[in-house]
Computed example of a mutant assay.
Amino acid sequence: MNIFRTLNAFLEDESAIKTILTRMDFENGKGNAFYYLIYDGNTVSFPTPSSTPVLLSTPNVRGNLEFADLYTLQIIDLEVGDEQ
């Protein structure tokens, strides 16, 4: 359950106007999520959880893409596992 709590903390990015989860894997106490965050304009922040996660987590930003001069799409690959 702690893996899902940690993933959820990262997915609830308060700076983003939308989160789109496209893939989530879970096996042997470790998880991986691939998701997109949509920001208003170019005010993009590094993905951090709204609360302190209970598990070691490594967010890896794969890229940022500006579109329509209104929004920025950020692509994140998040690995979660190993208790702190």
Rank of each mutant, 00 (worst) to 15 (best):
N42Y: 14
D25H: 05
T48W: 02
D25M: 08
D25G: 01
P53C: 12
P53E: 04
V54A: 04
P47Y: 02
T48Q: 00
P49F: 04
T22A: 02
Y39G: 09
L37T: 05
T48V: 10
Y35F: 12
D13T: 02
R23W: 05
T43M: 13
A16Q: 14
Y39K: 02
T52W: 11
G29R: 09
N42P: 00
Y35L: 11
L55I: 02
G29A: 05
V44T: 08
T19P: 11
T22M: 03
F34L: 15
F26T: 09
I38Q: 09
D40G: 11
V54G: 04
S50M: 13
N32H: 11
S51Y: 15
Y39M: 10
K18T: 13
V44W: 08
L37F: 09
K30G: 01
P49D: 06
M24T: 02
A33N: 02
S51R: 12
A33K: 03
F46I: 04
L55S: 00
I17Q: 15
R23P: 01
D25Q: 13
N32Q: 08
Y36I: 04
N32A: 07
K30P: 01
Y39E: 00
S57G: 05
I20C: 10
N42H: 13
P49Y: 08
L37G: 01
Y39D: 10
Y36A: 09
E14V: 06
K30E: 06
F26M: 10
R23E: 02
N28Y: 12
V44E: 06
T52A: 12
Y39R: 06
D13R: 02
M24S: 04
F46Y: 09
I17G: 14
M24I: 03
I20A: 11
E14Q: 08
K30D: 07
D40P: 06
G31E: 03
T19C: 14
P47G: 01
I17L: 14
N32L: 02
G41L: 15
G31W: 00
P49S: 12
S57H: 05
T19D: 10
D40N: 12
S50R: 13
G41V: 12
S15V: 04
A16G: 10
Y35W: 06
L55C: 03
D13Q: 04
D25T: 07
I38C: 11
G31S: 05
G41F: 08
P49I: 06
M24C: 05
G41I: 13
A33T: 02
P49H: 07
F46T: 02
G41S: 14
A16P: 06
D40V: 11
T52K: 13
N28H: 12
P49A: 11
P49Q: 09
